[in-house]
């Protein structure tokens, strides 16, 4: 544990070293959220019913911004780092140290997660709560709900990075995965419920989603925050996240062992 802590703290420092990139990221992603906010406003304004996909307009506003808060924390692309390490031949530099490569990456991602949570995340969240209370006239979120959300979001983070590690392993076989990384991001933003709530998909598609890890990455914690899950459903949703973490962890170990056996370090 103590061994990996510096990876997290260093990533934090590294993030702060590149201020420009950070503000750009902040601006672009917030901008996207406001676009979808106004889009949904227009959709609800012209709709016949007051709920779409089981969400009222107020809930949709919360959904849009909480999705922003959650996904900025959760979607930390480990695979980018893996592919960078592979292309530059830096995997070797990691293997000469008495550490586990995956653990060091996860801790590094943890550092970035913390930074994103502190930097825009928490402020957007608080701002949203005030907006909700004073503009929409809804009560503040319950403390237990916040706890459940944070618990679920942390598992989402683990789930995402474990999945991304497995995905990044492709880089060892194909060397260059930039295109695949772009495709992954586009596809995942759909499957995680980042673009539109999964409850708006047709029934059969939602059935399929039940068996995929992706809804557990962003959609689940946001729905928990909205209070859409009752007791047994809540336990089931959290349990499912946990099971996916275990499965992806095991998968990652298997793939990593195979990769290191046939590792070819680029550049001599």
């Amino acid at each position: 544990m103590k061994v990996y802590l510096p990876f997290a703290s260093n990533e934090l420092k590294r993030q702060m070293a590149y201020k420009g990139a950070f503000y750009l990221f902040l601006f672009i992603s917030l901008f996207g959220s406001f676009i979808s906010y106004y889009l949904w406003k227009a959709v609800y304004g012209s709709a016949n019913s007051t709920t779409i996909g089981g969400l009222t307009q107020q809930e949709m506003i919360i959904y849009v911004f909480m999705t922003y808060v959650t996904s900025s924390m959760v979607t930390i692309s480990l695979a980018d780092w893996v592919s960078e390490d592979v292309v530059k031949g830096l995997v070797a530099m990691n293997l000469i140290k008495p550490i586990d490569y995956r653990m060091s990456l996860i801790w590094r991602a943890g550092g970035q997660m913390l930074y994103r949570f502190l930097m825009p995340g928490v402020f957007v969240w608080i701002g949203l709560e005030f907006y909700k209370h004073y503009a929409l006239g809804m009560p503040f979120v319950k403390f237990t709900t916040v706890l459940c959300f944070l618990c679920s979001a942390s598992m989402s983070f683990l789930l995402y990075v474990l999945f991304d590690f497995c995905f990044g392993m492709i880089a060892f076989f194909t060397t260059y995965i930039f295109g695949m990384l772009m495709a992954k991001e586009a596809l995942l933003s759909f499957l995680m419920g980042q673009l539109i709530p999964l409850s708006m998909f047709p029934g059969w598609a939602q059935k399929i989603f039940e068996f995929l890890p992706f809804p557990s990455m962003v959609y689940t914690p946001v729905m928990i925050y909205l209070g859409k899950y009752q007791r047994s459903e809540l336990v089931f949703a959290l349990g499912r996240q946990f099971i996916w973490i275990v499965l992806l962890y095991a998968l990652g170990s298997v793939v990593w062992n195979r990769v290191t056996k046939r590792l070819v370090v680029l550049g001599g």
């Binding site: 260093n10 420092k13 590294r14 031949g89 530099m93």
Partner: peptide
């Protein structure tokens, strides 16, 4: 280990 053409140091820090 020192690989002359690579570094094990943290580039940005």
């Amino acid at each position: 280990v020192v690989f002359g053409q690579r570094t094990q140091l943290w580039w940005d820090l």
